[in-house]
Write a protein that binds this DNA or RNA. Structure first.
Lengths: 249, 249
DNA sequence: ACTGAGGAAATCATACATTGTTTTGATAGG
DNA sequence: CCTATCAAAACAATGTATGATTTCCTCAGT
């Protein structure tokens, strides 16, 4: 079941209340086949993204069905859907495993972001309305107000910031791609703190971006976004490396 | 079941025989859940890509099951997998429909190609071995020999040409993305002829590309690929427009 | 226009057959 | 006593079949 909130753009939600969860851009459904509130699909997917299911862990259909109180049928479908989305791998007759969200995976998707987001941004700069810009500034002020005290909230706001830019883009495919990748990166980075250097960079880059949007400097904005995404990706990777080193040592 | 041919790189296949079908880069599986030769997944997917199933056509599970001589379970799973891959859309309690492969869809994916492929190409230029280059030249000579007389064969060879460049790239995610998009574009363009202008452009661009690879001009090669992909995408779009206009008129 | 009956089809739950994989445990050989 | 081997049993994926329930659509009748 699609929750009612889904039909609203993120901006509308932000305007109504400060309590929100990051929402996908319009036209992207995040449900399973199911009609239930939280589908098996969502539950398994969250378990993977949030790391509650370990990398390469076997996904035994009957276990999952028991755990989620359903029959095997919905589980089987959920796993296929997840396979199509790349979160699960299958080996014939041996079932499904959790696709590891490792450093390579993260590198792959942020590199794709570096290639795609500048283009989305360039379009936004040329099409931004006064309201769009006001919303960016509004979100930016919330980000600065929060100032990384609540990292989950920061993550939500940061996602909202970028969603404002990409939500109206004509290339829904690219926007979807961005959103999917974003969700993965968000989940991974939720387990880390932002370094002071990264905090400063984020704030200044956002401010600079708004300035470029206001001035209509599409190319500068695109270049900046490339740096921004690159920096964000590297930051996450460094955290992962550090954690792995600590674990090994 | 994964056919034995899948484990070979395209190059090996080309070296062994001139009879071949375009193969995905290694590490990409194209099977359904099934253990059967041609899974329901493949059949439905081909029907969509090849246009045998019309845009937005309803996909009634019981019908599909009957048509393919299976029970409903495999069909449901195949549809979920296709949904995850973006070929099918679902509305809760109302089932699945064929995602229309229309002009917008084609534009969306070739634009993403324009963003991603130059980066893959840049990497290739810096990493290409003598064998890689020899293979490119070999394929190019086959392309020129064929000279668009057999358009399907041209399409296969052209895909092979690009596969040689991307198959070893470290970013498997990007390579997979390219492959998926490629398959769609290939299926769509199969129904059109190449204009003379386009034929000339393809041949000269391929030759120029090989020259850049030999010279190690990564940036020039990347720029050229951007033009190449752009041109190919526009060409397909123009054909679609023409066809739609003819149909409407 | 509104309503309500009927049907079509999705969704889910079971149960079961078949097939392939993995584990286990007994046994033979060193 | 240890190790390699192999068959049987346990396990689980995959496919089939069937029924219950729910949702949505259609269409006659008001």
């Amino acid at each position: 079941m699609i929750s009612p909130g889904y039909v609203y753009g993120l901006g509308k939600i932000l305007a109504e209340t400060s309590e929100f969860k990051a929402q996908p851009p319009e036209g992207i459904d995040a449900t399973g086949a199911s009609s239930e509130g939280a589908s098996v699909y969502q539950l398994i997917r969250d378990d993977i993204i949030e790391g509650r299911l370990a990398a390469n862990e076997r996904l035994v259909i009957t276990d999952l069905a028991r755990r989620h109180g359903t029959s095997t049928n919905p589980v089987r479908e959920a796993l296929q859907l997840l396979r199509g989305e790349g979160f699960v791998t299958f080996v014939p007759n041996r079932g499904a495993r959790v696709r590891p969200i490792d450093q390579d995976f993260v590198r792959d998707i942020y590199e794709i972001g570096v290639l795609i987001e500048p283009s989305l941004t360039r379009w936004f700069v040329n099409m931004a309305t006064v309201e769009d810009i006001a919303e960016l500034e509004r979100i930016q002020s919330l980000i600065e107000e929060n100032n990384f005290t609540d990292t989950v909230r920061h993550s939500e706001l940061d996602t909202a910031f970028h969603t404002v830019m990409y939500r109206k883009h004509y290339n829904r495919h690219a926007a979807e791609l961005w959103w999917k990748h974003r969700e993965v990166l968000r989940a991974v980075s939720r387990r880390f703190d932002f370094t002071l250097a990264r905090r400063a960079a984020i704030l200044s880059e956002h401010r600079e971006l708004i300035a470029h949007v206001k001035a209509g400097n599409a190319n500068e904005a695109a270049e900046l976004i490339a740096r921004h995404v690159e920096g964000s990706g590297r930051h996450i990777l460094e955290h992962m490396r550090a954690r792995n080193a600590a674990r090994a040592g």
